[in-house]
Design a protein around this nucleic acid. Structure first.
Lengths: 174, 174
DNA sequence: CATCAAATTGACGTGAACGTAAGGATCACG
DNA sequence: CGTGATCCTTACGTTCACGTCAATTTGATG
């Protein structure tokens, strides 16, 4: 829809331009360049300075993950960078583990490290999730009280004419 | 500890100074003034311009709630303002409902409005909570895989000497 | 009432996270 | 090979959410 308006589609992945990526993940080229600039995203691999950046869908996924974490955890890009360092470390681990020529001790160490990273992220996520769920409970509670009051009022003063059906859909619906 | 260093304690609430409030909720006076400036907090009621602001613990609670929402929902102060307008509406409803001289129709309308506000907040909270919990699940899943891999590795190459006990505490613990 | 910590208004400064504009270079396409 | 759309870099501008400094007041206390 934008890289090459119509025409010969190269079906093999790996040739998305920055504008396409931006639209795919719902952001702007500037933001993507900025993330690269501050080291949140790796510089497009070995790109002759001045040429266009090219991305594969792997990188698109990565960017999606980055923005998701940023939004959900509400952390600064700097903090996010350390969190992603963790992800990268895990990626490195996976890469190393695929090779057979590393001894068990090393493998254990790598796994141990990965576990540490995961646990730190989990702690962060769990804390926020917990707080949010508490907030949700409080709101639900309040909601119930309001509903009850409405029913009471309807029963007392009502009976004159039928109350219009409550306009409620399950919250969370479409 | 700071308003009046030691001395005669006026045990009745309602005379906290801005610095005290700031410390109580973990922020700075500047932030409180700023929130007032942009209309997030009501101007301290009928304060002769130039005099010190005085707060009651009710207002402290309110501020706590504000900061909690800001943090948990990750919204701008402007968005937060509309959300709080909702809270204020509910407060108004409560106030009105305590008076007996409002007719049932009005009461129903107020309650209906309040319900709308609550539902909007609930939707927001539920969405975020859901996303966060999905993230949590994914992380837990990954964690399990890593643990499994570690055990496998330990079983295969291990048996040479006892592996040191894993340093794991329940995530979320102290 | 003198004093000193803490508050007030006003103004300017700041870091984060981009937006925007300028002047060229690239790239797919005809 | 021309051309228009997109991209490149550089650099300055902007918004949000406060921080900070200054000159002055307020207000509880010795």
């Amino acid at each position: 829809m934008s890289s090459r308006t119509p025409g010969t589609e190269q079906p093999h992945a790996g040739s998305l331009r920055i504008g396409d990526v931006a639209r795919l993940v719902g952001t702007t080229p500037r933001t993507i360049r900025y993330y690269e600039e501050i080291g949140l995203l790796p510089e497009a691999p070995a790109r002759p300075s001045g040429r266009h950046r090219l991305y594969s869908d792997t990188e698109v996924e990565r960017l999606r993950e980055v923005m998701r974490l940023k939004d959900l955890l509400g952390v600064s890009l700097e903090e996010l960078k350390t969190l992603l360092a963790a992800e990268d470390a895990r990626a490195a681990v996976r890469a190393q583990l695929r090779r057979e020529d590393v001894d068990s001790d090393r493998r254990q160490a790598l796994l141990q490290e990965a576990l540490g990273h995961i646990d730190r992220q989990l702690a962060l996520v769990r804390r926020r999730a917990g707080e949010l769920s508490r907030l949700e409970d409080e709101l639900s509670e309040t909601r119930k009280r309001v509903r009850r009051k409405m029913r009471e009022l309807d029963a007392h003063a009502g009976a004159t004419f039928a109350a219009p059906a409550p306009i409620l859909q399950r919250p969370g619906g479409p």
